[in-house]
Design a protein around this nucleic acid. Structure first.
Length: 430
RNA sequence: GGAGAAGUACCCAAGUUGGCCGAAGGGGGCAGUUUGCUAAACUGUUAGUGGGGGCAACUCCAGCGAGGGUUCAAAUCCCUCCUUCUCCGCCA
């Protein structure tokens, strides 16, 4: 949610910033409705004030035995007028709210305009691995090593689902253990949230109403929005709601959390042949980092999150790069985003394994999450930030493909070996 | 799943024959008196918030879990929903 006062006072600036992310908007109608709205408020509140006064006078008149018929008739009329005004007001406010609900966040000042093509690589770690043998696709490696069962996954859940089995399941779990260990060491609090969330959670995150069809919706009863609950598409959706409607203590910030959850996504119509395997599924495991900070600390917090996520990939010994996204490539809620992209040899390309973003106060406004500033005594919105740390479904293919050997075995990253019986490689059974 | 009870300000809690109740009282907080310091006692003080109007002092509106309704008037009556608690059943 954007600051309505900012739109009111500086609509051109807001429109210009939104244009940088390719979002064209004109505030004229919104602003004229805003004036109508305020006139209406003024009028009905005058009437309400009269009503309150008269209402207090009636019992006194009665006590003195005066005739109240005329007053009551007037009250009845005022009541009708107020009701009428309130209805008009509600209609206008609903329109205004719907307008505001779908406006994306303003990009941060240091985020370049334009789309994907303007993303800038800010850091590259390691080098593209070169194989002196015909390298294999992770699907072939995973099947040959009996790590992943794609066929039975499809049998159980349909296309886009897979089953981790044996060493594959253990490797997946080792990754999660490794991440948990690192985040605990850095002082982040571990959270295991519900995987089924209510509508408001999606709203606060900034995913609803615009992207409500990207999630698995549950209980499609007759309710206004079509459904009441949904499967979380990322733990961010849960973590950003932890402090919804709360007034936080300035001195207790920042809050640093991480959560492990599977992520459930419909990915409707997003099938791409080159993404076969585990690159894009309907369910994948992810550990999510999240911070609530004071506004003046969010910039530094974002750097911390990027460094943490990048540090994990680095410890795994994998080749990756960090990109700073252009305004148009950031998700709607975010003011600034860095992507950590890992090298997938079979795709001859980098794929996102972590997205670290600052939402500024955008989500805090939607979820009403504030703190009282000691120095001024005023309420302010907190800033929220999130980063994957990390999504395993793309790490595992990268490990398989980047670490494959001529004999079809795969070297297990050193940091994971303690969860793999100390083994250094995954070998084919047959 | 069945049957009951409850949701009032930072916390506890009064308030159902509707009308000076936006709300008694207590605790806590804050300020002060007493005191060498602390404790205790005593005095005073304490909705926060959201939204209008005004240069401002200030003023008005909303708000007693949420949303509707009845009424001239709702914390109080009616309906729906949410949450919590107790008992029963079922179950990892």
């Amino acid at each position: 949610m954007l600051d309505i006062t900012l739109i009111r006072e500086n609509p051109d600036l807001v429109a210009e910033k939104l244009a940088r992310r390719g979002f064209e908007i004109n505030f004229d109608e919104f602003l004229s409705r805003d004036r109508v709205r305020r006139d209406l408020i003024y009028r009905t509140e005058q009437l309400k004030a009269e009503k309150n006064k008269t209402s207090a006078a009636i019992p006194l008149m009665k006590r003195e035995g005066q005739d109240t018929t005329a007053v009551m008739a007037r009250m009845k009329a005022i009541g009708e007028e107020i009701k009428d005004g309130d209805e008009q007001l509600a209609a206008i406010e609903k329109q205004q709210q719907e307008f505001l609900d779908v406006l994306p966040n303003l990009p941060a000042d240091d985020v370049v305009a334009g789309g994907k093509e303007n993303n800038q690589v800010v850091r590259t770690v390691g080098t593209v691995p070169v194989f002196d043998f015909p390298s294999q696709h992770h699907v072939d490696l995973a099947e040959r090593l009996e790590l992943i069962d794609y066929t039975r996954g499809a049998k159980l859940g349909g296309s886009g689902f897979w089953i981790y089995r044996g060493d594959g399941a253990r490797l997946e779990w080792a990754l999660l253990n490794f991440f948990v260990e690192q985040h605990l060491r850095d002082g982040y609090e571990m959270i295991l949230p519900p995987h089924i969330l209510n509508w408001q959670c999606g709203y606060t995150a900034g995913q609803f109403p615009k992207f409500k069809d990207d999630v698995y919706q549950l209980r499609a009863d007759q309710v206004e929005n079509g459904f009441t609950h949904f499967m979380l598409p990322t733990a961010e959706t849960a973590l950003v709601n932890l402090h919804r409607d709360e007034m936080l203590e300035e001195s207790s910030l920042p809050f640093k959390y991480f959560a492990y959850t599977p992520c459930y996504r419909r990915e409707a119509g997003s099938y791409r042949a080159e993404e076969r395997g585990m690159i894009r599924g309907h369910q994948f495991n992810k550990i999510e980092l999240f911070q609530y900070t004071l506004p003046e600390h969010s910039e530094k917090a974002l750097e911390e999150l990027v460094d943490k996520a990048a540090g994990l990939v680095e410890l795994l010994g994998l080749h990756f790069r960090v990109s700073k996204l252009a305004a148009g490539d950031c998700s709607a809620s975010m003011a600034k985003t860095y992507d950590i992209e890992i090298w997938i040899p079979s795709m001859n390309d980098y794929k996102e394994v972590s997205s670290a973003s600052s939402a500024g106060d955008y989500q805090a406004r939607r979820g009403n999450m504030r703190f009282r500033r000691k120095a001024t005594g005023r309420m302010e919105f907190v800033h929220t930030l999130n980063a994957s740390g990390l999504a395993t479904s793309r790490i595992l293919p990268a490990i398989l493909e980047q670490n494959q050997q001529a004999d079809g075995s795969v070297v297990i990253p050193e940091v994971l070996r303690k969860w793999m019986d100390g083994r250094a490689t995954l070998n084919s059974l047959g």
